[in-house]
Design a protein around this nucleic acid. Structure first.
Length: 149
DNA sequence: GCCAACGTTGGC
DNA sequence: GCCAACGTTGGC
């Protein structure tokens, strides 16, 4: 089993949205590295740190789990969608997504500031300067440490 | 709103 | 294939 960190802007899609929906496709990713993680490496049952970005207090808000492996992101074919990609075709889709299911919302958000203050977490891409990839692999140690903070 | 860092595009 | 220009991310 693998562990991941996935960023989302809570104004657009937060842990609360996921809690209400229970399951949701992780659509709208338009970065090749992030896509490749979803398409090639994420497996059903993998655990996810749900991270809130670009908001008042950025940090890990809870846990999710991969409930369906890679399949084409339908928003790439939708002309009305912000994520529409004219170069993608049904025969040759360019963007893929996974489905995630709600696991838990933390009682207290684990803020980026907190994560930065923990020495054992200093290797995470999240705390590296200039790292802005929306999906990152996380080690088992990092995952379990964060989920116990 | 600013800005550093990084990714993507497109001309050559 | 290089690289300048441009766009986006995301913390502050």
């Amino acid at each position: 089993m693998k562990y991941w960190l996935m960023k989302s802007e809570p104004d657009v899609f937060s842990i609360d949205h996921l809690k209400i929906k229970n399951k949701s496709g992780w659509d709208g990713v338009r970065n090749y590295q992030a896509r490749n993680f979803m398409r090639d490496e994420m497996k059903k049952g993998d655990m996810v740190l749900f991270y809130h970005s670009s908001c008042e207090e950025p940090g890990v808000a809870g846990l999710a789990r991969i409930s369906k492996e890679s399949h084409p992101d339908p928003t790439q074919f939708d002309k009305k969608s912000d994520y529409y990609d004219p170069k993608a075709t049904l025969e040759n889709p360019r963007w893929f997504m996974v489905e995630v299911e709600f696991v838990e919302k933390f009682d207290k958000l684990i803020s980026l500031a907190t994560i930065k203050s923990v020495k054992e977490l200093s290797g995470m891409p999240l705390v590296q300067k200039g790292s802005r990839l929306s999906i990152n692999p996380v080690s088992e140690k990092e995952f379990s440490l964060i989920s116990t903070l």
